[in-house]
């Protein structure tokens, strides 16, 4: 069916239909406030007609699927309108064609990730043939992984979809969250909304929480209920977001890595005991793999160099320094 540049379908004339008779074909996606649209429609009227498709032409001839214009319909209802002009797609139009026409009509304004996820979820439920035609329009043709993420993310509760729509949550992490129980989803989401970590940090935190959850046989929500985590979050106002985020990351890391945390504490105490001057910086491997150590010396004069040389001599004899190089544990 040819689509003219103005969004008109060749050969179809708009009809005035009751808004109450239009059933939304697509799930309602969050993230786009209606008020600006309602205001624009109030001032300029409906530029393009809605697109509808007879839902059950024989048994319910006056009932239509609303294929394109769901938000405009809601805005018109908000303005108190009861009817609107609509193009009625032919009842014998193949489902895939109707879906693709509707998607193409919406494509002009761009999709947020929640809309993409929900739309893909809906399209997938219509069968493989429809999905195959719709995937390129949704920008999902080339990536099976992206399609999987969308399907998973579409199952998330409303607050997560709103976060996704606003770009504060990404599809990859949303899909990961979708495998969690709802209390844990909301707990993690609240953490993200409070501290606004980067996508990379979200991925890291979710991974750690999953590991902790499996290892301790508790839900991520229960892990996040730890008083230390709660305190880190509640200090946001006092510390500022970057500090609060770092603090929470540190706590999560320690809970995930108790051995490394213990070794780090031990090493930190030993390095402190060395009382090195600022001009001698000992660089230690945070992973404790210790494939090499390095000592960074900074000096401006021969006298300063001599002091550092003396320091190195003392370090070589220092049992604390030896302990740093030879750290070990007993399991």
């Amino acid at each position: 069916m040819p689509l003219n540049p103005g969004g008109e379908v060749a050969g179809l004339q708009p009809q005035t239909l009751a808004l109450a008779d239009l059933q939304p074909f697509w799930p309602e996606a969050p993230g786009r406030p209606l008020e600006p649209l309602a205001e624009a429609l109030g001032q300029r009227g409906l530029g393009r007609p809605l697109w509808v498709w007879p839902a059950r032409p024989k048994s319910a001839p006056g009932v239509y699927w609303l294929m394109a214009g769901a938000r405009r319909r809601l805005a018109l209802l908000q303005l108190g309108r009861t009817t609107a002009p609509a193009l009625v797609l032919p009842p014998d139009l193949p489902l895939a064609a109707a879906v693709c026409l509707a998607l193409a009509d919406n494509q002009e304004r761009g999709w947020n990730q929640a809309e993409t996820a929900l739309t893909w979820h809906r399209v997938t439920g219509l069968g493989d043939a429809v999905a195959a035609e719709a995937a390129p329009i949704l920008g999902l043709a080339q990536s099976p992984r992206l399609r999987e993420w969308c399907l998973a993310a579409a199952e998330l509760p409303r607050p997560a979809l709103e976060s996704l729509a606003a770009g504060r949550l990404d599809l990859e992490n949303a899909a990961r969250l979708a495998t969690w129980d709802q209390a844990s989803q909301l707990a993690a989401l609240e953490l993200f909304e409070t501290l606004l970590p980067s996508k990379q940090k979200k991925r890291e935190w979710l991974s750690w929480l999953e590991d902790i959850s499996r290892r301790e046989n508790i839900s991520p929500a229960r892990a996040l209920a730890d008083p230390d985590f709660q305190a880190a979050r509640s200090n946001l106002a006092r510390e500022g977001r970057p500090a609060a985020e770092n603090n929470l990351r540190r706590l999560l890391w320690r809970r995930r890595h108790p051995l490394l945390a213990e070794l780090t504490d031990q090493r930190t105490a030993r390095v402190k005991a060395l009382a090195l001057p600022p001009s001698a910086r000992l660089e230690l491997d945070p992973t404790f793999e210790d494939l090499k150590f390095s000592l960074n010396l900074t000096f401006a004069t021969r006298a300063e160099f001599q002091k550092l040389a003396d320091l190195m001599g003392r370090l070589a004899e220092s049992p604390v320094f030896s302990a740093i190089l030879n750290d070990d544990i007993n399991d």
Partner: peptide, 21 residues
């Protein structure tokens, strides 16, 4: 679920002190 570090070869390994033990 055990603790791992990223080794010099990019593989995840138990922390060295644990491997030593």
């Amino acid at each position: 679920d055990a603790e791992f570090i990223t080794g010099g070869d990019g593989k995840m390994r138990y922390p060295r002190p644990r491997r030593t033990a």
